[in-house]
Simulated scan of single mutants.
Amino acid sequence: MKIAVLGWGSLIWDRDTLKIVDEEWNEDGPELPIEFARMSGGGRLTLVIKPNWKPVRVLYSTSAFEILESAIENLRNREGTSTERIGFYNFQNGDKNIKETNLSVFENILAWNKMKDFDAIIWTDLPPNFRDKLKLEYTLENISKQFVEMSSLEFSSAKEYIEKAPKQIQTEYRSEIEKIVLREQANRG
């Protein structure tokens, strides 16, 4: 079984335990609505699928595993999450794990795979949580407030993630978030 692993965030620059066969990530993945909309460990504002937002072309690689369950476990282990948070579609038998909120973006994955012909596709399917975690609306103003309130360690971690995010992942908010980071860095001296 040939399995694609989709990526758009830290998987790209830090494979850690993820086993893939391609030396470099392929830049012609499907278009998905990705945004910096999840507050993760260390204060990082990370990239996740955010339905109904601007689609961007994500990256992909081929898993070193030929058994879908093994590829899912490998990605789950790398991400330090539960199996339920690994999205997948098995083109051979129709098995899938796709959040209801992400069903609309699944059509892009299907259309993309018609050109690539993978037997299965897997991805990290963490939800946006900015509003739930911080009890704030997801706006640039509130993102800016978050950066101001971060400790030095959190700010450093958040800044690193944003700087290392693949340049092709030009989300709706990315350029404004980069400006927020530069402004906050200047304010911190």
Rank of each mutant, 00 (worst) to 15 (best):
M1S: 14
I3L: 06
W8E: 03
S10M: 11
W13V: 11
D14K: 08
R15Q: 11
I20T: 04
V21N: 11
V21G: 01
W25S: 14
W25H: 09
N26M: 13
D28N: 15
D28E: 15
L32Y: 13
E35Y: 14
F36H: 13
S40I: 03
G43H: 12
G43Q: 03
N52Q: 11
K54I: 10
P55S: 04
V56L: 04
V58H: 08
L59E: 06
S61C: 10
T62K: 01
L68R: 10
I72Q: 04
I72S: 08
G80Q: 10
G87P: 12
F91Q: 13
D95A: 14
D95W: 08
K96H: 06
K96P: 09
K99N: 06
E100A: 12
S104N: 11
V105L: 00
F106Y: 08
A111D: 13
K114P: 01
K114N: 02
I121Q: 00
L126K: 05
P127F: 00
K133D: 10
L136A: 12
L140A: 05
E141F: 04
I143Q: 00
I143V: 15
F147C: 07
E149L: 11
S151D: 05
F155L: 01
F155Q: 07
A158D: 08
A158L: 06
K159A: 05
K159Q: 09
E160G: 03
E160F: 05
K164L: 10
E178P: 07
L182W: 04
R183S: 09
Q185S: 06
N187A: 14
N187K: 14
G189D: 09
G189V: 06
